[in-house]
Amino acid sequence: MGADTGRDPGGLDQYWRRRAIALGGVIGAVGLLAWACAGDGGEEGKPLRNAAATAGPSPSGVPIPSAMPTVTVTATAKVTATPKPAQKPGDACDARDVVVTMAATRETYAAGEQPQFRLTAVNTGGRACTFDVGPRSLDVRVTSGSDRVWSSAQCDRGDGSSIQMLRRGIPYAATITWDRKRGSGRCQGKRLPVRPGTYVAKVHSPDKIKVRKQIFSLR
């Protein structure tokens, strides 16, 4: 008989039984670990959610949000423009509402004849207003090239002001006469007559009112 004669036949069965129990424990441990990683019914590959951040049902059955919404308050500065007081009839005209024209009474003046220029001011605004048509506001200047020969403001004997009420669309007209002499200072003392030739008359206005110049000749 061989060397196995006399061994317990049940020893082999117990050996394989212990191996099976050990293998089952390993499989069970692996399965438990896999279940713990997968989470409580979550999708595969997603990390476990923090139980503290997960919203749960409120006692009334209304879901409680997981986080309160953030409220941003923006302060806006409101600037209120102060309206300009409405202008009344009789107030000073807006220079943009006044159209001024000038025309020489002739293109050529004979010897000894004094040139005259007709100034016209028309109010185009919506209300009657006052406007200064005097030489301080509308200075007629006669030039010859770069030489300023005469100025109505220099030779005016008053304060240079003439305030007139201008009604809409009704022109105010005034005539300016030049005595064909040079104006110096306040036109005091001896003034020399000018020579025959071509001269230019322009209107100078502190309000920058544009007026077409006039070209004329003296004989």
Rank of each mutant, 00 (worst) to 15 (best):
residue 192 L to K: 11
residue 49 R to K: 08
residue 167 R to C: 05
residue 128 A to K: 06
residue 75 A to D: 13
residue 118 R to H: 10
residue 194 V to K: 03
residue 8 D to Q: 09
residue 20 A to K: 11
residue 172 Y to Q: 12
residue 145 G to L: 12
residue 205 S to R: 02
residue 144 S to W: 15
residue 188 Q to I: 08
residue 187 C to S: 00
residue 97 D to Q: 12
residue 135 P to G: 14
residue 135 P to W: 11
residue 52 A to T: 09
residue 190 K to V: 06
residue 152 S to E: 00
residue 72 T to H: 05
residue 145 G to Y: 15
residue 192 L to N: 12
residue 110 A to K: 14
residue 68 M to Y: 03
residue 80 T to A: 07
residue 191 R to D: 07
residue 18 R to S: 13
residue 207 D to V: 03
residue 155 C to Y: 00
residue 205 S to L: 01
residue 130 T to W: 03
residue 182 R to I: 04
residue 51 A to G: 00
residue 61 G to V: 04
residue 8 D to N: 11
residue 115 P to D: 07
residue 113 E to A: 14
residue 49 R to N: 04
residue 109 Y to G: 05
residue 90 G to A: 01
residue 111 A to W: 02
residue 1 M to C: 06
residue 62 V to H: 08
residue 191 R to N: 06
residue 46 K to A: 10
residue 44 E to D: 06
residue 31 G to I: 07
residue 171 P to H: 08
residue 215 I to H: 11
residue 4 D to V: 14
residue 64 I to C: 06
residue 213 K to V: 07
residue 48 L to K: 09
residue 2 G to R: 12
residue 85 P to Y: 03
residue 215 I to G: 03
residue 21 I to P: 06
residue 199 Y to G: 02
residue 175 T to N: 11
residue 209 I to P: 05
residue 137 S to L: 11
residue 128 A to D: 08
residue 5 T to N: 08
residue 35 W to T: 13
residue 41 G to T: 12
residue 164 Q to Y: 03
residue 110 A to L: 15
residue 61 G to E: 03
residue 219 R to M: 05
residue 29 A to E: 02
